[in-house]
Structure formats: C-alpha cells, structure tokens
C-alpha cells in the first residue's frame, strides 16, 4: 500500500543540461507516443534516479505496512478473518518483493535499498508511523488505506516505466481483494453490537488525519513536479488523488452510519470538489522526518529482522548443492 505524495525532491534546473539533447528528444517522443521505457533503453539520469526513489519507497511501504496489520493476524477473530488477514498481509510482502525487483532493473540492489531503509535514508509511507491499537484499526487500514493506495497505484500503473507498470497492474488486482475484505470487516463492525460500532468509530476518528496526509501535501505547497508529470513518472497530483478518494469513499463511510471527524467536510456541488479542514502539514512533516508515534519502533523491527536473518542470507551465498532441474 502506498499513497505517494511525498517522494519527489526539488530538482535542479541544470539537471538535464548534461544529457544528450537528441537522445532526450527521442526519449520524450517515445513517452508522448505512450510507449513504455524498458530497463535496457536509454533514459535520462534524472528519470532513473526519481524512479528508483519512487519504486523503492513504494516497496518499503509494503514491508513496513505489513507491520501494523501483521500484529492483528495472531488476534483475528475467527477462522475466516484469520485466514484472510494472513493472505492479505502476505500479499503486501509479495508486493515488496515485486517492487524491489522492479527497482533493481534500474541498477540498485535490494540489499542497498533495505540498508537505506533501516538507516533512515530512504522513506516509506507516512501512515504506517501510526499505531493500530484495535482490531477496528486493522479493518480501517485494510479497507480505506488500501483504497487510497489503489487510487494512487492505478494512476501510476499507466506511467512510462514498463517494469513498474507491470508490477502495479498485478498489485492493484490483489489490492482490490484487500479492499473487499476490509470493507466486509468494517461493515460487520459498523452494523454490529454497540461495542463493535464504538470500536469502528474510534478507529475512523484516529485514522482520519493520517488518511488525509496519505496523498501528500496540497499541490499549492508541494514540490514542483512538472517534468515528472511530462515523463509519466508521476501520473496524478496529490490533490487529484485525495479528491478521487473522498469522492469514492466518504459516501460509503456515511452510508454505514459512521461519521468523519471533520465538520467542514462536504462536497461543493458547484465546483464538484470536496472541501475540508486543511490537514496539519506541520505534523505531516514532523512525522515523515522521524518524529511520529511509531517511526522508531517500525525501523527497529525491520532492523532486528535484518540482523537476525543475516546468517541465513550469508549461508545462501555458500551453496554446496546445485539445483539444475526444477524441483516441482
């Protein structure tokens, strides 16, 4: 799951000056024609760099995102939920695997990417720095955080880099099942006993602000990314994704008798745009820069897993047996 929005750093105006102008023109013409760029094709350094950054952050978001929901696998109530949540979180880890592979086609190894994650050099989706206190929190994530991720990922799957688009198509298909599972869980809580309804409402209240942050800062204040839009690296603006999400899901939340903790939230019938209280972007910045409720814990877990698994990875590099035929 990944909402994007925060990935692009400011670019120098001179970044393209060193590129061969003819190759650059051909590259841009290919993108204009809707062709996909493949790993061995020529591409500007800036394109490569920004794609690595984006795909890597997406991959990190998948493995870190497995943590807040993963804690609920061992507590899921009943066989149906237990099995579905296991499969769901497994999918997320699988997405990380797909995405690291896609990023590797651009020349950065998985080990290097994971090192950059655990040293804090590389970021992941801000929303996973918040804790999942109750079962209802995990249901909120499965439904609405995944829904938000789909909005972003469907847009990006129409981008210009072939391996990333293909990974995203598969990921979106799986995410759509997550969303169905999450919606099913939320329906049961929202229409269940008094206690269940209270749990669900409390989760919506807790997660609404991080959810609004999920798509990244407002276009008014976010880093200029015109060239990335032209190159089809970034396919929709933060505000476009946020509006689409609100349009699709606020009515569904209200339909279940749940409320959204923002009294200014309403759709302006004239403009067709949702209006809402401006999210606290200072908090967003603070959390993404490491000072959220769970940043330290999430990275510590990942770091520990890497350290505990090091001997296994080393042993894999010292094979005595060679497998030349498929085992199954």
């Amino acid at each position: 799951m990944y909402g994007g929005g925060n990935v692009f750093e400011a670019m120098k105006a001179t970044a393209l000056a060193e590129e061969d102008p003819q190759k650059l023109a051909e590259f841009e013409a290919r993108i204009d024609r809707g062709e996909k760029i493949e790993p061995k094709d020529w591409m500007p350094q800036l394109y490569r760099k920004q794609l690595i950054r984006m795909i890597e952050q997406h991959a990190h978001s998948e493995i870190i995102g497995a943590l807040p929901e993963g804690t609920w696998i061992t507590r899921a109530p009943g066989f149906k939920r237990k099995l579905a949540l296991m499969a769901k979180v497994q999918d997320e880890v699988g997405h990380a695997q797909l995405l690291y592979s896609a990023a590797e086609t651009l020349g950065k190894s998985r080990e290097q990417m994971i090192d950059d994650l655990i040293t804090g050099k590389s970021k992941y989706s801000n929303i996973f720095n918040y804790p999942a206190f109750t079962w209802a929190d995990s249901c909120f994530i499965s439904w609405l955080v995944d829904a938000g991720a789909i909005v972003n990922q469907v847009a990006n799957s129409k981008g210009s880099y072939g391996p990333y688009c293909r990974a995203l198509e598969r990921i979106c298909a799986e995410e759509s099942f997550h969303l169905k599972y999450g919606h099913h869980c939320v329906i049961h809580l929202a229409t269940g006993t008094k206690k269940q309804r209270e749990m669900m409402q409390a989760a919506v209240n807790r997660w609404w602000a991080p959810m609004m942050h999920f798509f990244g800062p407002s276009d008014k204040i976010s880093v200029h990314s015109e060239i990335l839009m032209r190159w089809k690296v970034k396919m929709a603006s933060n505000d476009e994704c946020r509006q689409q999400f609100l349009d699709m899901y606020v009515p569904k939340i209200w339909e279940l008798g749940l409320t959204v903790p923002d009294e200014n939230l309403k759709k302006n019938q004239e403009t067709g745009q949702w209006e809402f209280t401006e999210p606290d972007w200072e908090e967003f910045k603070r959390v993404i820069n490491g000072d959220g409720p769970c940043n330290k814990e999430r990275l510590a877990v990942r770091r520990t897993a890497e350290e505990r698994g090091r001997w296994v990875r080393e042993a894999l590099l010292a094979p005595k047996a060679k497998y030349v035929t498929p085992l199954a």
Binding site: A66, G70, M86, R313
Partner: peptide, 10 residues
C-alpha cells in the same frame, strides 16, 4: 504466521 513481516528474507 508469526513470521509474517519478520522473515530472514522476503
């Protein structure tokens, strides 16, 4: 299932 998210490699 407790290994989910903690495996030595993905």
């Amino acid at each position: 299932s407790e290994w989910t998210g903690f495996g030595p490699l993905l």
